[in-house]
Write a protein that binds this DNA or RNA. Structure first.
Length: 414
DNA sequence: TCTGGGGTCCTAGGACCC
DNA sequence: TCTGGGGTCCTAGGACCC
């Protein structure tokens, strides 16, 4: 028997909300987080006042500046967002033991079995109990953190997410078992998680606008558009999707109830025009960074991927399977080789990235083995960084090209 | 008005082995 | 010598999510 016990909780305009806690004078004004006015970059979060002017997530800051010239543009305080995200999660965990963070501002909660814990005489049924508890949860987040949030409760994860979207802003919706298909049917296809801009266009070209039409579309058509996802997507569109909460984001991996896979680690950087030598030193810095992250997670990478974007936005990737390592010098050597082979066009490079994948857990080490000089170097570097900050120590190649001001290598990272 | 940065998952062709 | 098929790994690209 399916019950509406899966809850999707989303912090409304999360980055903007945190900025308003840090600076209350931003309340009521159009606010855009994602970069300084007129600069390069895209909108990562915008207030409802800015959205009313046409500003959307993912839009370039330039375009947002044109639409909302009087808006406040902020580069953002990522450390603060993480703090508030963790605090919100701790509140949610008071209401149910089964919580999975899907991103910094989105969590899934499983309320199965919690009804008896919260049941009250005034609740007409168990759905009413869960709805009341969900409201109490968003209220606690508002009271204790000052953050607005919305929630959707339904029988499946996908339906809960759609319901949460319908509830925004500051709302809570419960879609009872049996009411899913009727709720979804009139919605545009794009509302369904898994339908992005490309699939939306393809569906439109096939004359499919609503989820009701998607549900009754021929199998061959859906397979052609969605491939392996076709069956699951049709099920989701009918409100018959799975109730599993899904996997944690890597940042929260240690809480992951389904977390046997180790995923990947990547860093990339877009920059204004640069010389080739500069690009190479940037690659060195990125190699160092992903390796430091791998070591802090206790993993080694069996695969290294280089990402390269030319000025015309043509983007290529080159990867190589390697003997698993988390050693900067090893990874950098591979990255550099991939880069020199891949960089065939005479165009300026606008972005480079380094990714580590095929991660495996580090062999448990009671002490540093004397024969593995590379490993020991990496760990020593990490110890220095723990004490003096990430920039306290770098590979010489990173320093040579980076116009970095030699300074503030004092004190740990904030 | 050119389009960030962190991820996940699927596809498809070719190599290689049996 | 030629042909075929299944399984698996490697690699590059692309859709999607937040």
């Amino acid at each position: 028997m399916r019950l509406a016990r899966i809850c999707c909780l989303d912090l409304d305009t999360f980055f903007v909300s945190v900025e308003r806690l840090l600076d209350p004078s931003l309340c009521g004004r159009p606010v855009v987080v994602g970069g300084s006015k007129g600069g390069r970059g895209v909108v990562t979060s915008s207030s409802y006042e800015a959205r009313a002017l046409g500003v959307r997530s993912g839009m370039s800051i330039r375009e947002a500046t044109r639409l909302a010239p009087r808006a406040v543009f902020l580069p953002g305080h990522h450390g603060e967002y993480t703090k508030y995200s963790t605090a919100a999660r701790e509140i949610v965990e008071r209401f149910s033991p089964v919580v999975v963070a899907a991103s910094i501002d989105e969590q899934y909660v499983d309320f199965h079995g919690c009804e008896s814990l919260y049941r009250r005489a005034e609740d007409v049924d168990d759905d009413a109990t869960i709805l009341r508890v969900t409201r109490a949860m968003t209220q606690a987040i508002a009271d204790e953190l000052g953050l607005p949030s919305s929630a959707g409760v339904a029988t499946s994860r996908s339906m809960a997410k759609v319901a949460c979207g319908l509830a925004k802003p500051r709302g809570v919706i419960l879609v009872p078992a049996g009411a899913e298909e009727a709720t979804l049917a009139p919605l545009p296809v794009r509302k369904l998680p898994g339908v992005g801009p490309v699939s939306e266009q393809r569906l439109h070209r096939a004359g499919i606008e609503t989820l009701a039409q998607l549900v009754s579309a021929p199998d061959t058509l859906l397979r052609a558009i969605f491939g392996a996802y076709a069956t699951g997507l049709r099920r989701d569109a009918r409100g018959e999707g799975g109730a599993e909460l899904g996997r944690e984001r890597p940042a929260f991996r240690e809480h992951d109830p389904y977390g046997e896979r180790l995923g990947s680690i990547s860093n990339e950087r877009t920059f204004a025009e640069r010389s080739a030598a500069d690009t190479e030193s940037r690659l060195c810095g990125l190699s160092e960074r992903v390796c430091a992250r791998a070591r802090s997670r206790g993993v080694r990478a069996g695969r290294v991927t280089l990402r390269l974007r030319y000025a015309d936005f043509d983007t290529i990737t080159r990867s190589r399977t390697i003997t698993p390592t988390s050693e900067d010098v090893e990874v950098h050597r591979v990255v550099l080789d991939l880069y020199r082979r891949a960089r065939t066009r005479p165009l300026p490079v606008r972005l480079v990235g380094v990714a580590l994948s095929k991660l495996e857990l580090d062999a448990p080490q009671l002490e540093l083995p004397p024969f593995d000089a590379g490993d020991r170097r990496g760990r020593t570097v990490d110890l220095v960084r723990d004490k003096f900050g990430y920039d306290a120590v770098h590979l010489a190649t990173t320093l040579s090209g980076e116009p970095r001001t030699h300074k503030r290598s004092t004190g740990p990272r904030a």
